[in-house]
Amino acid sequence: MSFSILIVDDSLPMRGVLKKTFRAAGYGGASFLEAEDGQQALEMLKGNWIDIVITDFNMPIMNGLEMIQKMKEHDLFKNIPVVVVTTEGSQEKIDEFIEQGASGYIKKPFTPEQIKELLIQLLGESTDEEEIDTAGDQFDF
């Protein structure tokens, strides 16, 4: 089964790095949608089937935490798992993410293994193994 993954980050290079990391983690067949902030992500959720949302916290217009809160208020979005990928590392902030409904948390810098472990936990094992590295990407941090 291929997954549909929504990546929410205001950094263009970071969105690219996350996509590469998902491919390296075995989710090469997933389809990716990208949003630059929480507001844009909510709009995308309305028109697309999304299996999981991967979001930064610190973004202009609407941050990751506000986006999670909005998703939890919406019947169709409240059960979509959300993983926060951010530099914010204080225990207080991590607790707040989880309390507000985040399904998981990954701190930058991250490894493909950390991403894979969390995605398997949330989505199950990927069947996209044959599609790993189809773009010939070298990516192993």
Binding site: S11, L12, P13, M14, N58, T86, T87, E88, G89, S90, Q91, E92, K93, K108, P109
Partner: peptide
């Protein structure tokens, strides 16, 4: 974008190490 992301990670890492318990807004 790379420069901003590098600084974001450096600042986030720095502030987390300076104070692991309380939240420093970035």
């Amino acid at each position: 974008g790379t420069l901003k992301e590098a600084l974001n990670m450096i600042a986030g890492n720095t502030l987390t190490q300076i104070d692991k318990t309380s939240y420093m807004g970035l």
